[in-house]
Each structure stands twice: as structure tokens, then as C-alpha cells.
Design a protein around this nucleic acid. Structure first.
Length: 377
RNA sequence: GGUGGGGUAGCGAAGUGGCUAAACGCGGUGGACUGUAAAUCCACUCCCUCAGGGUUCGGCAGUUCGAAUCUGUCCCCCACCA
């Protein structure tokens, strides 16, 4: 087995749990937030900056790296770790999300998915076997099964058909996987908002015995209550001795809600994307740092934060960088936002260890001025 | 002093009789972003207010049912020539 999950502690208050995932490139503690580095880079940041802010595991993407520079280039470089100079764990997504996000450019068939390259328009074909082959070349510590991420809302019939196909694809992924001692493979539970479909999907995947299980098809525009409801009835279907990964979630409120319901791993482009667009996550909620109110605000972005940006620069300076279109602004806020979520998970782990998860969750909600009904955070 | 070109919203720049409160770009002000087609996208940006109304296209005076657009005159800017 390429990875091993050690359950350290289960919360006495809820389904939250503390664990360690051991991988060929080192261990990481869970719950964990993983920064997204789609194209073999967490956009704008260097390895040193990621290490300094406490990133333990990052993502790469099968579709993007296949298309550019090509998986053979990365294989020749010695794998993705060597290619991008990141010696810690890497998880690669399978291209399943592109089945969703490139909806206008693709066609789903049983055999696989036809894409038009989002830049060149070239015809491409991605299948479970191909996605595994590419990920084998990338050499990630954790590979994801090739799935379909259906949009919200979708009909019951379509979700059933899609979840069924994703199960057949999961089986094919397992069969195609040739590097089982070096790379783990996670299955992805689908089924939309429907309990019977999620149950069916989860049970079939568990029967196939993956190294870990992801919950997919969430955070695609559904109300927060649906997401929480799906998590509440899905995580109990997953084995306790394997990690559980909620794909695509990265707002503080949603992470807390999901940890409470037994999720261990998260990834999201949110912190880095909104950073490049001038929005910072702070203890008091989101801050659009380019706003005029910060023109002469010479205090740190987030006084409570220990990141490089908050220790060295002011809000007025960050606003100036964004107004002037300077790249450094995007970098500094990206550092802060990732650090913010990494620190959140550090605090969550501490809270679980001390059996005061709810106390911590309520504090975060209160400081943000959030309520359970809020769509965001 | 002469000849030619020109003065349109914060800036640049279209528009040369009614469809024009006036394209478009920049700038400005907000907002969005959740397994990255994203240093992107959306909204507003003459004034007052929700629908509606009120003032505009260097100034003034005209022509016309109607003028940013035509005429006269004045002011200013640019280029070249003396």
C-alpha cells in the first residue's frame, strides 16, 4: 500500500477526527487543507513560500498537465515532484472536474470523454485508463479515479446514470493502476443530493477497496444545507481506516461544517483565485483589499495572522499594489490566504485534540459574523 | 503676422441635422469567484431620484419643427511658414 491512514483521535463531540496520512513523500496530519497547483504550480508562489506557510500537500491536475507540457515530459523529468521541485506529498485530480467545468467543450461516452482542448481546440480523449496512465507518469502520491462531476441541479435519473458510469470507470481505474506500492488511488462517491444514490455509490466503491474515498459532486452551486445533509449521511458509509476527502471545498465555514461531519481532506482554488483578484480571507471575513477605504490603512491585512505578508506589509501597500496592477500584490495575498486556511486546519486539529471543536467552530463563526444559514464561509 | 488642423464626459477618442446623455478604450467605485479555460468576469461611472426628470459636446449669437453636427463671431490649442 502506497499510503497509510492512522486515526489518532475521534472527537467526543461530533464526527470530527484527527489523523495522519503517511505517504512516500512524507506524512501530513488531517484535517488538512491542500493548495491547488493545477499546472504544476500553486499560482504565483515558490516552493520556499509554500513551505514557509506550512503547506503539507498540494494538488496537480491530470487534464492540464497532459495537455501541457505533456505527461511524457514530466515522466522524463523524474515525475511531478522532481519537475516542480516539490518534495512533499502531491495529490492529482483525474480530469473529472474538467468533465464538469469544460461542459461546452466535451462529450461524455461510456468509453470516456471527448474534449476540445480549451486553448487550441484540438480533439482529445480522456478515459479512466488514460487518466491513470497520465497520473502514473506524474507519480503523484495520491491519484484520483476518473469520474463525472455532474452539475447542480441534475435529475435523479441522470445522477443515477452518471453515478453508475463513474462506478464502472472506478473499476477500470483500479484495473489500470500499475504502481500500487508507490501511488495510492482514491475512489469518488457521486450521487448528487440523493441519499440512496450516495449510499449505493459509496458501498460499491468501498467494496472495490480504494486507498481513500472522496466525496465529489458537491460545491457545484448547491445550497449549503444540501452539502451538509449529503455529508452527514455519506461519511458514515465510508471506512474509518481510510482518509475522506471533500473535493473542491475551501471556505472556512464549509470546512468547519465538513470536519464536523467526518471529513479529513480539502482542496480549493478559492484562496488563490480570490487572492489574485484582490480579496483576502481574514478573521473578520473577506476583505477586498483594493477598496478605497484601505487607501491610508497602514495596519496589517490581518493582525491575528503570522504569515509573511501580515508581518511585513500594510493594507495601504497591498491596495496600492492592486491598483497599480503589480504582480507582488497577487503573490502576497495568495501567501496570506493559503496560510489562513492552513492555520484554520491547524487550529481545528488542536480543537479536536482538546475536545473543544464546537467551541472553536462557534468562535470562528462569531468572529466572521457568520450564521449557519449563510451561503458562504 | 500667414497657412492648415483642432477644441466632445476625469483622460483618450467616435459621432458631422432627428434613431445621441452621446459608441469604444482608459481611469474611478463597488461586487463575484469554492476537485483553476480565471492577473478573470459583472455592474455603475454628467446631475437629481426606484419608474422618471434636469442640464450638456470651447463661449456667444443665429438658421431649423429639431443642432455636438449648419452659419456668423469671439476665445483657446497644435503644426508649418514668416
Amino acid at each position: 500500500m502506497a499510503i497509510k491512514y492512522r486515526l489518532i483521535k475521534e472527537s467526543r463531540e461530533c464526527m470530527a477526527r484527527l489523523g495522519v496520512v503517511e505517504t512516500p513523500h512524507g506524512n501530513f496530519e488531517t484535517p488538512v487543507f491542500m493548495a491547488v497547483g493545477t499546472q504544476a504550480t500553486v499560482k504565483t508562489l515558490t516552493r520556499e513560500e509554500l513551505l514557509a506557510l506550512g503547506a503539507e500537500i498540494i494538488l496537480g491536475n491530470t487534464y492540464h498537465l497532459w495537455v501541457q507540457p505533456g505527461n511524457s515530459v514530466i515522466r522524463e523529468a523524474g515525475g511531478l515532484h522532481a519537475f516542480m521541485n516539490w518534495e512533499r506529498p502531491i495529490l492529482t485530480d483525474s480530469g473529472g472536474f474538467q468533465v464538469f467545468s469544460l461542459a461546452k467543450l466535451r462529450d461524455i461516452k461510456e468509453e470516456g470523454v471527448r474534449f476540445r482542448h480549451h486553448k487550441s481546440g484540438a480533439r482529445l480523449f480522456l478515459s479512466p485508463e488514460k487518466a491513470i496512465e497520465i497520473q502514473n507518469d506524474l507519480g503523484s502520491d495520491i491519484m484520483m479515479a476518473f469520474d463525472e462531476c455532474p452539475p447542480y441541479p441534475s435529475s435523479y435519473d441522470y445522477l443515477k446514470e452518471s453515478a453508475d458510469r463513474t462506478l464502472r470507470w472506478a473499476e477500470r481505474c483500479l484495473k489500470a493502476h500499475k504502481n500500487k506500492d508507490r501511488q495510492a488511488l482514491f475512489g469518488i462517491v457521486q450521487g448528487g443530493e440523493f441519499e440512496d444514490l450516495r449510499k449505493y455509490s459509496a458501498e460499491e466503491l468501498v467494496r472495490m477497496d480504494f486507498d481513500g474515498y472522496a466525496i465529489g459532486g458537491l460545491s457545484v452551486g448547491e445550497p449549503k444545507e444540501i452539502q451538509n445533509r449529503v455529508l452527514a449521511f455519506t461519511t458514515p458509509l465510508l471506512p474509518k481506516n481510510k482518509p475522506r476527502y471533500l473535493m473542491g471545498v475551501g471556505s472556512p465555514g464549509m470546512i468547519l461544517d465538513a470536519v464536523e461531519r467526518g471529513v479529513d481532506m480539502f482542496d480549493c482554488v478559492l484562496p488563490t483565485r480570490i487572492a489574485r483578484h484582490g480579496t483576502a480571507m481574514t478573521v473578520r471575513g473577506r476583505v477586498n483589499i483594493a477598496n478605497k477605504e484601505f487607501e491610508r490603512d497602514f495596519s496589517p491585512l490581518d493582525p491575528a495572522c503570522d504569515c509573511y505578508t501580515c508581518k511585513h506589509y500594510t493594507r495601504a501597500y497591498l491596495r496600492h499594489l492592486f491598483k497599480a496592477g503589480e504582480i507582488l500584490g497577487m503573490r502576497l495575498v495568495s501567501i496570506h490566504n493559503i496560510r489562513f486556511l492552513v492555520e484554520l486546519t491547524e487550529n481545528i486539529r488542536k480543537a479536536i485534540r482538546e475536545d473543544r471543536f464546537y467551541e472553536y467552530k462557534e468562535k470562528v463563526y462569531r468572529d466572521y459574523g457568520l450564521h449557519d444559514s449563510d451561503k458562504d464561509f
